[in-house]
Structure formats: structure tokens, C-alpha cells
Design a binder for these strands. Structure first.
Lengths: 351, 351
DNA sequence: ATGATTAGTGGTATCGATTACATTTTGCGG
DNA sequence: CCGCAAAATGTAATCGATACCACTAATCAT
């Protein structure tokens, strides 16, 4: 406990050079003779010396730390995004500080700036959030993941909802569906709008029944999916269903079951988000998986490049969209007895 | 960009006092006249001055930062634990640094100690992990969550698995079951052992059928639960089933369904962990919920008290167990047509 | 050979807050 | 109104690494 820290001075003395030289070695500066460098490296090695990042941060004003602001830790998509962020951060030598978004907003240690080099916001409701305020008046580099940013100073990384929805409907079409219903999330969410666009485009491209009766709104919850599906069943018929997220798909399946409709025989169903429970419900639920890990990696990578670029983004587009992928499961399985797919073979377009 | 930081000296000048006094105000030292204090507070307020935590950390050697080492970010129990940890940390004025356990172990910035005051390890497989090594030779205060620690220097916070299992079996008994099967996790996991003990005790206390044929092993996966249940069905009969976790319960239900047994009519089922998907499977799955948020809070609280106590734990027991709670859902519902519970009314013991 | 570069290195002020110690002010009994 | 303890405040060294500047030695062009 009484043991003093090994400082750069100890290293310098041991190597018989000045602290400045040791510092240069530590920072991989070019201007050190390779013999000296080796000398210093050995001395530090022997002493077990490592630079104190706190002292370095004080002097340089750079802490190699990124602050992660998370809206809800228990959002199901968070963990995978974190995996991506952490991996990239680690590889690039950045530390990660985390806290809850509102915690930080109410200013507990709000302008405890200066020791973070950038900010990543993970939220799904940033449209009612002032990013400029979060970045602080010092205008720290900031990027958000999973939510739109209107402000071009702050880039954002998003799943390509349009493309994901398109994939879902394409899959249903290729499974032989001819009328695909869509249960959308609330229409004021950018994600909902994009998914609706993707749905409509695919309906057109695959010559599915184009009918506004096939579209209903939910509020992302399971019960809203159940009710939306009931409304659909009350006014029209369909053999495919695309839900804006997995809980709504789950609720819809309940409604279908109540109407004695079998999934996937009578109606094939695709959800969105590829939540963990897709593997546990029966039938297992086909879904669109967002590239969460990649989103995290890209966000971290972009932020780092902003940090190194004096806080500015170098490329033009501040909205970065990453492609989703389809996860096929039983809820869209084509069984030998009901080879819907064959009926439609040939309709399938490119892409 | 060229704007210099507002320092303690600016605050001191503005308030007409010395930096020492400002510092004392900042640190809520008693020895400041309340008039001076107000003066300083106003000055700082006006200037928008906040102490630079980096400088403070350099001087004091305390950073008010706790390092969170997470084994797997995508473990389903992580988010709720984080909620607890973050909340407590925020309230107590601690920052949270996160990284992956193995990332840090392989020494990337390993002895970048000195700027963290303590460590929290979140892992479910710490029995093959050297905690002393993680804490470093400086012996930083360390606590683990969700995993056992053999070393009394490092406390751990766990769910009370024994009690949770007991609750599950009690619930099945009270729902009218007379023979409760148990699908255990691998027997080398401490959690499995505790849950088995809880199961056995409840079987005794509630006078359920005591039969080693009712116990099978799985490996936590859904398919292992399916197979274990098949084995059970091949050698015995039962009207209740307790699975060591939710995926195994889910697999078991598949096997039951294959055998044309209805859940909960023929067999009532309880899982463990209260995973998110319990609400989405059909029937919805009763489960034992671990007090994850509380575990996080208690871990953080305990760690902080260790930090303030020179790294040592003040109370004796280094294993802290928190009670689980039962979540009743449809997989154990007693229907009017099958009022098993009534059959057993009166058997119910205390607790 | 001379002056001009440049590579390599050292000396030391500095980042901003804390705190041991010194100093001043206040309070109070007599 | 004195004296002395307690309270309040100031002075300045310090934490450890960095980076500006200065300096030496080596390289090079003419």
C-alpha cells in the first residue's frame, strides 16, 4: 500500500535518458534512435512501468475515452450494439465510459467534459432529444446509433429499415404469398415510415395485391399486434403477414390462431428485429435481423475518425445505413403439402 | 476551439478567494464559512466552472471510477444488472468504465490501473477465473456479480438459487402437482447444485413424490431440455416440471407437446431466469426471476463501501445472496376444469 | 571547409486541482 | 481589552506525463 507508483522518471533514470525521451518512446515518436528506444523499452519492461493515463490526459486534454450514453439498458438491441462498440474501441485503444442518457442529461456530472473525446448515444427516441445539448457547448464529436439525427453535425448509424422491410416482403412473395398484410409501428417513427416504404415497393415489385386494407397500425406491443391482426381479419384476407417488430408478430399469430388459421400453412409471418424469443415461440418466427454488431463497430469507427479530424465528419452523408438480413424460420416454412413457392416460381425478380 | 477551460483559479479570482478555498467548497469540506461558500458557489455558477476530474484524479489518486468487466455483453441477464449498477453508481457519484473481461485480461491496457478505484466482474463462469489476477497486484477492491467467488477477499453477489428453486417447486405443489420432475443444469455449476438442493428440500417439505427418476440433466440449451424431457417421459410419469432455466423449459414443453401432453393441464411447468421470451411463448411460461437489478445495486454499494474502507470488506460473509421471485404465468395456471390446487389445499406448509 | 539542415536528446514549465503547512481572523472567558 | 484556542483562509509544492524550446552532433550542399 505504501508502494509508490513507478513513474516516467524512474524509467528515465534506469535507462539513463531524460523523461522527454521516455515519453517519446511511449508515444512512438519517430525521433528516437532505435538503440535508445530499445534501451528505454527494456528499462520500462524491467521496472514494470506503464504511463499513467490520467496524467497524460491532464497534459494533453485527450483521454482516449468515449462516453456511451444509453437510453435504456434493457432495450433488447443494446447488448449486440455494445459488442460491436467495445470490440472496435478495444482495437483502437479507446476506453468506454457508460451512463444512462437521462442521468447524464439532468446534469449530475454533465459538463464533466474534457476527459472524454467523444460521445455515442444509443437511443430509439432521439427525435425528441436535443443532440447539441448532449454534445455540450464545447461541441464534442457525437454520433448516434439506432436513431435518426436531423443535425448533420452529428452522424447516425441505422439499420436500413427500407431494405429490411423489402427483404421481408420479398421472402413472403418467394414463399408463395400473394396478399401480404403489414402491421406497422406508429407512423411518427422514422423506422416505421421506412419500413412502410420498403413494404410498398416490394408489393409493387413482386406484383402482390396492392390494397390499403392490408395495412394496419400497432404501437410495437404484442397486444397491439393482436388487435391489428383482428382488424385485418375482419376486413380482408391475406396469406402473408409482415409485422413491424417481433412482439407485434407474436400478437398477430395469437389472433390468427384464434381464427383457426395455421402459421405458416394459411398465413406466413415475418417479424422484425430478430428478437431472442423468435427461436422459442412456436412456430419459430422468421424475422429481419438488424446488423447490430456492425452498427456498433461502424459508429465507433466513425466517431474515432471524427475525433482525429478535429470533430468534423469527413465524408458527406451523415446518415449511415447498414443492411439487414433475413432469418428464415418455421413461420414462413414452405411445406411439401403446401408448396406455395412453386405457384409463384418465375415471379421472382432480381435483387 | 481556442477557448481555454475555466479553471479553479478563475473561480477563485472571481470570488476573491484562494484556490484552496474553492477546492474546499468543491469538496464540501466543513471548514468554510457559509458566506464564503455562497460567494464561491455563485462565482462558479456564473463562470460555469466545474472541477476537472482528471486533474483531481491525478492529484488524489482516486478517480471515482469503477471498472466493469463483462464476460459476455449478450448474456440475457446483463442489461438488468447494469441498470442496478448504473443507478447506484450515479447516485453515489461514480463513473463506470466498461470492457470485456477477456479483452482486459489479455492485457491490452491491463495495468492501466491507478485510475480506477474498484472492479466489478460480471460473469457466469468465474470458477475458472483467477480473480486475484484480475484485481492486479495492487489488489484493487473487486466484487463479482452472478458468479461464485471462492476467495473471501473478493465478495460476490448471487441470486439465491436454493430459495428460487424452492419457490418454483412450492408453486407447483400449491398448484396441485404431486410428482414434480426436475431438469437440472450441468452439475458442476454451483447454481445447479443449489437449485437441486432447493428442489429436493421442497419435494420433502411438500410431500411430493421423492424419486430420483424424476431428475434429469441438461446443458442449459433448449434442445437439451427437449431430450431430458424425452428421457423423463420414457421412464416415469409426472404432473409438474421444473427446469433449471427457461430455454430448457421451452424444449421440455416441445417434448411434452409431442407426447400429446397439455401444458398446464397435464403437466405444469416452471422455468428459471424469467427470460424475456417467457411472455411470448404459448403457453406463457411461469418462471423464477432473479433480482438482477438489486444484485447490481448491492454489488455497486458493497464495492463502494470497500473502496471507502481501504479495500476491505467490513462484514464477514463474502457471499451475498438475494432472493428470487416467482412469476406466475399460464404454464402453471389452474383452470376451473382442472383445479389441481384444490386437491392439495391443506398440504401447503408455511413459508 | 563553411554554413545550413536535421536527427536526437535534455531541461523544464505546464495541465488543474489538492492539501500540508503557514498565516490570519474570529470568538470568548476573564 | 488581553490572550489563546479554534476557525477560516492563503501559499505553494505536488501528482506524472507532455511538449516547447534549446542545444549538440551528424549530414549535406556548394
Amino acid at each position: 500500500m505504501t508502494k509508490r507508483r513507478v513513474t516516467i522518471r524512474d524509467g528515465a533514470k534506469k535507462a539513463g535518458v531524460s523523461t522527454a525521451t521516455v515519453s517519446r518512446v511511449l508515444n512512438k515518436s519517430k525521433k528516437v534512435h532505435f538503440r535508445t528506444r530499445r534501451l528505454v523499452e527494456n528499462a520500462c519492461e524491467e521496472l514494470g512501468f506503464y504511463r499513467d493515463p490520467i496524467a497524460a490526459a491532464l497534459r494533453t486534454g485527450k483521454s482516449n475515452t468515449v462516453h456511451l450514453l444509453i437510453e435504456r439498458f434493457d432495450g433488447s438491441f443494446i447488448p449486440d450494439i455494445l459488442v460491436g462498440i467495445e470490440g472496435k474501441a478495444d482495437r483502437e485503444g479507446y476506453r468506454l465510459l457508460v451512463s444512462k442518457l437521462d442521468t447524464t442529461q439532468r446534469g449530475v456530472w454533465e459538463p464533466g467534459n474534457q476527459y472524454i473525446d467523444g460521445i455515442i448515444v444509443i437511443s430509439d427516441s432521439v427525435h425528441n432529444l436535443n443532440l447539441g445539448e448532449v454534445a455540450g457547448k464545447d461541441g464534442l464529436p457525437l454520433i448516434c446509433v439506432y436513431s435518426y439525427s436531423q443535425d448533420p453535425r452529428y452522424p447516425c448509424v441505422l439499420p436500413d429499415d427500407y431494405h429490411g422491410a423489402y427483404l421481408a416482403v420479398q421472402h413472403l412473395a418467394e414463399s408463395g404469398c400473394e396478399a401480404v398484410a403489414f402491421i406497422s409501428g406508429p407512423s411518427d417513427w422514422p423506422a416505421s415510415q421506412d419500413r412502410l416504404r420498403g413494404y410498398k415497393q416490394a408489393v409493387k415489385d413482386f406484383a402482390l395485391r396492392d390494397d390499403s386494407n392490408l395495412i394496419e397500425l400497432g404501437d410495437w406491443t404484442m397486444v397491439s399486434g393482436y388487435r391489428a391482426c383482428q382488424r385485418l381479419l375482419g376486413k380482408t384476407t391475406f396469406d402473408g403477414l409482415f409485422a413491424g417488430n417481433d412482439p407485434m408478430a407474436s400478437g398477430a399469430i395469437d389472433a390468427l390462431r384464434e381464427h383457426r388459421l395455421d402459421v405458416p400453412r394459411d398465413v406466413a409471418v415475418v417479424g422484425f428485429d430478430d428478437a431472442a424469443f423468435c427461436r422459442y415461440v412456436r412456430p419459430t418466427l422468421s424475422s429481419i435481423a438488424m446488423p447490430l454488431k456492425e452498427m456498433g463497430e461502424v459508429a465507433m469507427g466513425t466517431l474515432i475518425s471524427m475525433i482525429r479530424n478535429d470533430g468534423r465528419l469527413d465524408h458527406n452523408e451523415h446518415v449511415i445505413k447498414l443492411p439487414c438480413v433475413l432469418r428464415r424460420r418455421d413461420s414462413t416454412k414452405v411445406t411439401p403439402e403446401h408448396p406455395r413457392a412453386e405457384r409463384r416460381t418465375g415471379y421472382v425478380t432480381s435483387n
